[in-house]
């Protein structure tokens, strides 16, 4: 029972971190990153191969992978975050540079499907469709991963990472840079006319999101010790989109709420739906239909989400608060 609670807490932490990252891209900057899960997967794979022994080591010969450096704890996670960020650079340069935003979304969606296909079919890199297993949990050489202490420690580290990411995300959202990102989201042409470099803005937020996504993947893979193409199919990104749309686009608290409600809520609630009726796979199918209904329902009835983005009114020095401004603000 305890293990169940800890699993939920770690999953919640990972989902919250992922939602905060996607919120920076989608909610704040308006980049519809349909390949978000690819960056999470990049972080997870990197963390895995950095912490695993070489594939020639005893007991690992059933799988093939690159590297296998067996590096100590913080390095695989940092490596995962780094690779998530690095991967965002070529993708951003290729796809975010000149395209119309709806084309960008489609190109990113297609990218997500294709990267998954390539990793599935190409075995030498990350063991193809079977994926990587027996990934050593971080710090396992010091503390036995099967003890309660270790589980609490993992939850604690995840929580600290959540706070760190929330801090960074809040700083970005409330900074002049965040304001510029929102200006770009609201009206690309106007922002560009004011001398804002849209490509640079999109690229930086894409890289920041990629770094955080990579970190979330590293945390997840250290806990579940397994990573395969089937765990990061493109619909997983849609779950995160549902979370942000439900929680509240552009609001970090909304992203946290959505991360708690949608990915976690659906996984755990459907666990208690009785199985054994209907054809196999009915349960997951119902789950996906519910995610779709959630997105469409919220976009129709409450497009701003449960916790809407706070309306920001600037009362600059020298300008007295006039009735006009109040009207605008209300």
């Amino acid at each position: 029972m305890n293990y169940y609670v800890e699993t939920i807490l770690v999953y919640a932490g990972v989902d919250i971190i992922a939602c905060l990252a996607l919120n920076l891209q989608f909610g704040v900057s308006g980049i519809v990153n349909f390949s978000f899960i690819v960056f999470q997967a990049a972080g997870a794979y990197t963390a895995a191969v950095l912490s695993m022994p070489p594939d020639t080591a005893s007991g690992m010969s059933f799988q093939h992978y690159v590297l296998g450096l067996q590096l100590p704890f913080p390095i695989p996670w940092l490596g995962g975050a780094l690779v998530g960020g690095l991967l965002a650079i070529p993708v951003g340069v290729l796809l975010l540079r000149r395209l119309r935003s709806d084309y960008q979304a489609i190109a990113l969606l297609v990218l997500s499907v294709i990267v998954n296909t390539v990793i599935t079919n190409y075995r030498p890199l990350f063991n193809g469709a079977a994926g990587l297993s027996v990934i050593p949990p971080p710090l396992s050489e010091r503390i036995d991963p099967y003890t309660a202490t270790y589980q609490y420690l993992y939850v604690g580290i995840t929580f600290v990472c959540c706070l760190l990411v929330l801090f960074v995300a809040n700083r970005i959202v409330n900074s002049p840079y965040g304001r510029t990102l929102r200006a770009m989201r609201e009206h690309e042409l106007a922002a560009s006319a004011l001398g804002k470099n849209l490509v640079a803005l999109k690229l930086t937020v894409f890289v920041v999101g990629g770094i955080i996504a990579g970190l979330s993947g590293a945390i997840l893979v250290g806990f579940i010790s397994y990573w395969a193409p089937i765990t990061w199919l493109y619909p997983e990104t849609i779950v995160l989109f549902a979370a942000i749309i439900v929680g509240g686009r552009g609001n970090n608290l909304g992203a946290i709420l959505g991360g708690l409600l949608v990915p976690l809520g659906f996984e755990e609630i459907t666990r208690f739906i009785p199985t054994g009726f209907g054809p196999p796979g009915l349960g997951p199918a119902i789950q996906w239909v519910a995610i779709g209904l959630l997105i469409i329902g919220f976009l129709w009835f409450r497009p701003k989400g449960v916790l809407p983005e706070p309306r920001r009114v600037f009362n600059e020095a020298g300008i007295e608060e006039s009735p006009f401004m109040e009207v605008r603000a209300s």
């Binding site: 308006g30 519809v32 349909f34 935003s101 709806d102 979304a105 489609i106 969606l109 619909p235 849609i238 989109f241 549902a242 749309i245 209907g278 054809p279 796979g281 009915l282 997951p284 199918a285 119902i286 996906w288 239909v289 995610i291 779709g292 209904l293 997105i295 469409i296 976009l299 497009p303």
Partner: peptide, 22 residues
């Protein structure tokens, strides 16, 4: 336009999974 892309993707997911269930 972006909102429509998200709506159509969500719809796609639903149709595919209803079909999968049937």
């Amino acid at each position: 336009l972006l909102g429509m892309v998200i709506v159509s993707l969500a719809t796609s997911l639903m149709i595919q999974n209803v079909l999968l269930a049937i």
